[in-house]
């Protein structure tokens, strides 16, 4: 169990993380979602003991995580900016991980480099943004650390590389179950990986729940614009999209079976709530819309 108790992180007058209480059962894939500057990286830095909270504590299996060798050894935190020197070769980075990390799988690291077609003889300074992210992903996954934290690890990766990353992450998670925390802005792209979702906004946790439960919190109604609008009367609208005469509205809350049946008779189709719509609704005051 990973617990944050009253964690507050400040940078001068700015409060990045504000009295966060969070309990994360282990052995799951978490999605950490938040807008730019919402406190995601600060929260993850505290979780990984990269930063000591100004107030509060982080506990892993009941013991304080900060400066705890056992906890540090079983945590890997890959930031969007790699913690490597530009002059290092990729191979050196992997070697160091092998020397220091008891759970490091060198064979798997080489396999990942092969999958992502990355030359280990290259220096970090010679890598593109996407290739640097690949190195981060390799370091994160091959560490096989019980707590794996990946902070926007996809930056600069093309669609193929991102797909390979998600595939490898899921495959490795299934063969070596552990706690994975993914921070991302590409919500819909990764949403299927998440077992639980944590949404942070202005340093506070807005929401922490099972992904399936979140999807069940609302419904997407699609159909002819005027019929969809009429159907949505009286419901809170979380998001909307229109194309030609077709409109899709994301509605908050569950619908009664009778309502759905009536809607289907009127030619409307119903789908689960999009995680991104929920995220936008919860974290954006300007876009908040209601009927």
């Amino acid at each position: 169990m990973i617990e944050m108790r009253g964690v507050t992180i400040r940078y001068g007058d700015t409060v990045a993380v504000d009295d966060v209480h969070l309990t994360l059962p282990t052995g799951k894939i978490y999605g950490l979602l938040g807008r730019n500057g919402s406190g995601k990286t600060s929260l993850l830095s505290a979780l990984a003991s990269y930063r000591r909270p100004n107030r509060g504590t982080v506990l892993v299996d009941g013991v304080e995580a900060f400066e705890n060798p056992r906890v540090m050894r079983s945590t890997v935190f890959v930031r969007d900016t790699l913690d490597l020197n530009d002059s290092d070769r990729v191979r050196t980075a992997l070697d160091v991980a092998g020397w220091l990390r008891p759970t490091w799988d060198a064979e798997y690291a080489l396999k990942l480099l092969d999958i992502f077609e990355l030359d280990s003889r290259k220096r970090v300074s010679a890598l593109s943004r996407g290739q640097r992210s690949v190195v981060g992903v390799v370091l994160g996954l091959a560490a096989r650390a019980p707590l794996t934290i990946l902070d926007e690890s996809y930056l600069g990766m093309d669609a193929v590389a991102r797909t390979l990353f998600y595939r490898e992450l899921l495959a490795d998670y299934l063969s070596h179950p552990r706690t994975v925390i993914l921070s991302t802005h590409l919500i819909e792209e990764v949403a299927d990986l998440f077992e639980r979702v944590v949404i942070i906004d202005r340093g506070r946790i807005l929401l922490h729940d099972e992904t399936d439960a979140l999807r069940g919190r609302g419904v997407t109604v699609t159909g002819p614009a005027e019929r969809v609008t009429a159907f949505a009367a009286g419901h809170t609208v979380l998001g909307e999209q229109s194309l030609g005469g077709v409109r899709a509205l994301t509605l908050d809350g569950r619908l009664e079976p009778g309502e759905i049946a009536r809607g289907e008779q009127a030619g409307l189709t119903f789908g689960p709530l999009g995680l991104q719509d929920l995220f936008v609704h919860l974290t954006s005051q300007r876009l908040e819309a209601s009927r």
């Binding site: 003991s49 990269y50 400066e67 705890n68 060798p69 540090m72 050894r73 079983s74 945590t75 890997v76 935190f77 913690d83 490597l84 020197n85 160091v96 991980a97 020397w99 220091l100 990390r101 370091l139 560490a143 650390a145």
Partner: peptide, 13 residues
């Protein structure tokens, strides 16, 4: 410093 921290060492180690 940060390389060793990123590979699971504590500050004191």
């Amino acid at each position: 410093f940060r390389i060793f921290m990123a590979n699971g060492m504590t500050r004191h180690e």
